[in-house]
């Protein structure tokens, strides 16, 4: 698909926002809450901030909600009836100002939810998304997108990618058909491209390792059996913080709520890092100790998914490392594997 490039003047960004809003879209955008920036549904353009490196949580909630009701059921005496969810109620959502790493997270999720059997809930929600990405002008040393074949200006997965230039105007790359259609429908917002080079306005993210070289190493049996995992995970507490903030972690649990009027079966986030995740009713646990669970997390992303789904299950956003209470730094550990194995 050939990419078209337009530009948006700094004072017409709110026009883009208002037009999208007036077309009935919900807009999910970064807002400042106390000392943090997080994605939330916004009503006014002024609420949005672009002054952040990373939000604590990813935006996966928009297609893989913390809780997704799978169906409802009604029990009357011995009779049981199941009721489908009304999928037409899923709203059109514009994700605004999302960084390229987070955008590419959707691709990993797609790999998981659509390989072999297709997951209707994910696909329906994904169909309703329009993604307006924003290149990164800032980064910190947790960022490692360039190590996993992405970059601060990567267009992959966005419908439109904006890059803020020196004078405050934006370069607008129309990546997908959806993005092109959007631009065509707002000719006064998307104007003739100016002569400026996107690369000049992107932050430089140091490459920590090369995923092309790392992946085959992760797939070696010696790596799996290495004492590295125990040594490097002794301090891991075994919580789910890394998985829950991760844009690509998709493990879930299925539960019922069968009390009162709300009879539903739903899925909710779960994590391979939690001890209970794999435990059998008999008490036998295939991944008994934390090092095995930490290994599973990294192997799943860098050994199993590349082989099975042809994608890397990591976008280099560093959210897990920032969220970790005990400084389990994923980039540092991957770098060590790349160097030593």
């Amino acid at each position: 698909m050939s990419m078209e490039i337009k530009s948006i003047q700094k004072d017409s960004l709110d026009k883009l926002f208002n037009s999208l809003k007036s077309r009935g879209n919900l807009i999910y955008a970064p807002v400042k809450v106390k000392n943090e920036v997080q994605f939330d549904f916004v009503e006014k353009f002024e609420q949005i901030t672009d002054d952040f490196i990373q939000t604590t949580q990813s935006v996966k909630n928009s297609v893989f909600p913390k809780i997704e009701t799978l169906f409802k059921f009604v029990k009357t005496g011995k009779e049981v009836k199941m009721l489908d969810m009304d999928m037409s109620l899923i709203p059109e959502i514009v994700i605004w100002g999302i960084h390229p790493c987070d955008v590419w997270g959707f691709d990993s999720l797609r790999a998981i939810f659509t390989w072999d059997t297709h997951d209707m809930f994910f696909e329906k929600r994904m169909d309703k998304l329009t993604i307006i990405g924003m290149s990164c002008a800032k980064a910190d040393d947790y960022c490692f997108c360039t190590s996993v074949n992405l970059g601060p200006g990567s267009t992959k997965g966005s419908d439109v990618l904006l890059t803020k230039t020196g004078n405050g105007d934006y370069i607008a790359e129309l990546v997908s058909d959806k993005g092109k259609a959007l631009a065509t429908s707002m000719p006064d917002v998307f104007v003739q491209a100016v002569q400026s080079k996107k690369e000049d306005f992107l932050v430089v993210v140091e490459k920590r390792f090369d995923s092309e070289s790392l992946i085959p190493k992760m797939q070696k049996k010696e790596t799996f059996d290495s004492p590295f995992w125990v040594t490097n995970s002794l301090r891991c507490l075994g919580c789910g913080a890394c998985a829950y903030v991760c844009p690509t972690c998709a493990c879930f649990d299925i539960q019922d709520e069968g009390y009162g009027a709300r009879n539903i079966r739903f899925r909710c986030w779960d994590s391979c890092g939690l001890k209970q995740f794999t435990i059998h009713t008999s008490g036998h646990n295939p991944r008994e100790v934390q090092s095995q669970r930490w290994r599973q997390r990294l192997m799943h992303k860098f050994a199993y998914m590349p082989e099975r789904n042809k994608v890397t299950g990591c976008v280099g956003c560093g959210k897990c490392s920032r969220a970790c209470p005990v400084d389990m730094n994923i980039a540092e550990q991957l770098q060590e594997i790349d160097q030593k194995m």
Binding site: D119, A250, F252, D253, I254, D270, H280, P286, A303
Partner: peptide, 19 residues
């Protein structure tokens, strides 16, 4: 094998062993 399972179609991650 009797690994713990939830979904039954390779999504929930529970019964993942190697690839």
């Amino acid at each position: 094998l009797e690994n713990r399972m939830k979904c039954g179609f390779g999504k929930c991650g529970r019964c993942n062993v190697g690839k």
